[in-house]
Amino acid sequence: MKVLLIEDEAGFAHDVKTYLTSNDMTCEWANTIETTLENISLFEYDCILLDLSLPDGNGMKVLTELRKQNKTEGVIIISAKDTLETRLEGLQLGADDYLTKPFHLSELLARIQSLFRRKHFEGNNMLQLNEIQIDMMAKSVKVNDQLVEMTKKEFELILYLIANKNRILSKSSLAEHLSGDMAYMLDNHDFVYTHMKNLKKKLISAGSKDYIKTVYGLGYQWVM
């Protein structure tokens, strides 16, 4: 999967790039609108991560340019601005998702994968990991063809874990993923334990291997 990252903060860009690359993605980095437009006209990408405040202007320009060139790349806006207006403007100009800084890199990875799935598997959208089969459309999980009853939150958790498989996910990253836009309202992330415990129990009793490893004091990891 090929990703173009547009971001003027070098330190931040470096970490995003490293995180994505170590997850079998190719990540290119542009720090101005000018280089971005150049890259876009030369190459094809699966996903574009777009910061809005760039040294040579507003990142929204990239969106209008993409539309002009009839490009269908998925775009995720990553910005510190979180007003409803900028959000709506971005989505109206053709962005697929909006992620407010600061965010967990694991959240970004999950969003990229979700965007990729939406773009490339229309209709039948199934994920098969060993004995576990996940139906994205029906939002159901089967272990060895046996349906596992799950709550909405447990389903979101397993997707998030799998999207970041073999990576350590902090408790706060999981909690914020489950809470969405209102995540900043949380002052306690301990409720993740309960959901995780239930998910683990359900998977094991359905005959799955124990993929969820607890990283003591910090969070969880889907080991596969």
Binding site: F12, D15, T18, A80, P102, F103, H104, I168
Partner: peptide
């Protein structure tokens, strides 16, 4: 945001 990303990277 940078601090967050650094911490996430460090974790890996």
């Amino acid at each position: 945001a940078v601090l967050h990303a650094k911490l996430d990277s460090f974790l890996q």
